[in-house]
Design a protein around this nucleic acid. Structure first.
Length: 201
DNA sequence: CGTCTTTGACCAGCGC
DNA sequence: GCGCTGGTCAAAGACG
């Protein structure tokens, strides 16, 4: 997968990769299951690139502080340069926030997608159960928490719309699915049956 | 009736 | 100890 753009934040965190593909449409045939099971973009073969998607993808492996640098707070901070007092308060808030984030125990890999979409919940082929919603500081929109409904799968995702740009939905996946994507399997199973049938001759 | 969403309560960790 | 904040739980209700 091509590294098209490296933001300062990403440059400061070598384990993160930021992708900014061109057009404003999410490809409907994107194989999320494959992508999510290959969190290292260097391992993703070319057919899984997302050249036609307006998806800014940030991969976070060990250094999970990148998550906090990606969200609204960082962008809001940029706009608050006028008053030094506010800046100081902001820095203190940021410190507190960073410490909370850093105390998060090292868990499964986290992958962040920024997607231009009017839909909050993107159809990635997996089934999700919502287990919580919280209004987040410095964000106009609440953050929603989802868990994969597969009984043996412990993957979670957070969904939040940017207040800076309300057309962008940030989806953060935590963990890797240990089962195939149901939607893809549904699509493929008739095809596989047909191939098995044809293989008899 | 099973599955899913909603939402207030609760908890943990940190700074003050 | 208290307040703040993000993350999770669980009861209640909606829905097909």
């Amino acid at each position: 997968m091509e590294k098209q753009e490296m933001t300062p934040a990403a440059a400061a965190h070598p384990t993160n990769y930021v992708f900014t593909p061109q057009t404003p449409q999410m490809p409907s045939d994107m194989d999320w299951s494959f992508f999510l099971s290959h969190p290292d973009p260097e391992q993703v073969p070319s057919q899984y690139e997302m050249p036609s998607a307006s998806v800014t993808t940030t991969l976070v492996s060990e250094d999970q502080t990148k998550i906090s640098n990606c969200d609204d707070h960082d962008h809001l901070k940029e706009e608050e340069d006028e008053e030094e007092e506010e800046e100081e308060q902001d820095r203190n808030k940021e410190k507190r926030r960073a410490s909370r984030v850093s105390r998060r125990k090292a868990g499964p890999p986290r992958v962040e997608f920024q997607t231009k979409s009017s839909e909050d919940l993107l159809d990635d082929g997996y089934r999700w159960r919502k287990y919580g919603q919280k209004s987040v500081k410095n964000s106009l929109f609440p953050r929603s928490y989802y868990r994969c409904t597969h009984h043996t799968c412990n993957v979670k995702k957070q969904v939040q719309r940017l207040s800076r740009d309300t057309s962008i939905v940030v989806t953060t996946y935590e963990g890797i699915h240990n089962h195939p994507c149901e939607q893809i399997m549904e699509t493929l199973s008739p095809l596989l049956k047909q191939m098995q049938f044809l293989a008899q001759f």
